[in-house]
């Protein structure tokens, strides 16, 4: 009688002591009478014995993990978070100064005022339209034509009529322009009473809310704190690595 696969499973489990006492007793009684079962049991036992005799190889090297492999970072020095926070705050303030200066209403007049010297130099004497054509859009209308006689008249009108003066930026532009025109057009100068009054206000308003010196100072502070934080971290990592290598 040949052994079925179920018998092979039972014999294998029997070898490993995995059968309960009833199953073991039944199998043992069959083994006494069934030679093919005994042969299978011998085969299984031999295979298992050979595997158990297989020599265990030693690991070719140690598989211990280093902190780097395990992704372990050295503990940060106590002062590190303070400098890191200081760096972050200084950097943030540094950026904010640029944003504040950029968004300041002073920016627009400053831009508009920039081409004004060109009018004064090129347009004042010639009285032609050529430089005016290349002028930025921001200086349109009366402002663009300021150097011409017409424009000058308009500027006079603007300074004389209160509704036109309500527009702050325009008034500023006009005041700047008329003040520059004054030396070149000597006659109308005394008439510009209103722009002259506005003139002292102009330098104060042209200054940025945050001075350049403050910006530089904040930048330097951010850089110094950042370097200190980096140095502290680097130093701790070096010590940690040295300590680990000495173990």
């Amino acid at each position: 009688m040949t052994a079925s696969f179920r018998d092979v499973e039972l014999l294998s489990a029997y070898l490993d002591g995995q059968l309960d006492s009833n199953e073991s007793a039944r199998l043992e009684s069959r083994l006494k009478t069934d030679e093919s079962l005994r042969a299978v049991l011998d085969d299984l036992r031999e295979a298992r014995g050979i595997l158990r005799q297989l020599p265990q190889r030693r690991a070719p090297r140690n598989f211990t993990l280093t902190p780097q492999m395990a992704g372990i970072k050295p503990p940060a020095p106590r002062a590190y978070p303070v400098f890191r926070l200081a760096t972050a705050v200084a950097t943030l303030l540094f950026v904010i100064t640029f944003v504040v200066n950029g968004l300041s209403p002073v920016a627009a007049p400053r831009l508009a005022a920039a081409p004004a010297p060109a009018f004064g130099m090129g347009g004042g004497g010639v009285g032609g339209g050529a430089p005016n054509e290349s002028a930025p859009a921001a200086t349109q209308a009366p402002a663009i034509e300021a150097p011409t006689a017409e424009a000058f008249a308009q500027s006079q009108t603007a300074t004389e009529t209160p509704p036109a003066a309500n527009d702050n930026s325009r008034a500023t532009i006009l005041s700047t322009q008329t003040s520059e025109l004054a030396p070149k057009a000597a006659a109308p100068a005394p008439l510009n009473a209103a722009p002259v009054q506005v003139q002292p206000e102009a330098p104060a308003r042209n200054q940025a809310p945050v001075s350049f010196i403050w910006q530089i100072a904040l930048g330097i502070v951010a850089l110094i704190f950042g370097l200190i934080a980096w140095f502290l971290r680097l130093n701790t990592e070096r010590k940690f690595r040295r300590q680990w290598n000495n173990k």
Binding site: F5, V8, E9, S12, Q18, D43, L44, A47, L51
Partner: peptide, 11 residues
């Protein structure tokens, strides 16, 4: 149990 028995026999 089944895999072990088959593996031993094949070995």
């Amino acid at each position: 149990k089944s895999r072990l028995a088959r593996a031993r026999l094949r070995l």
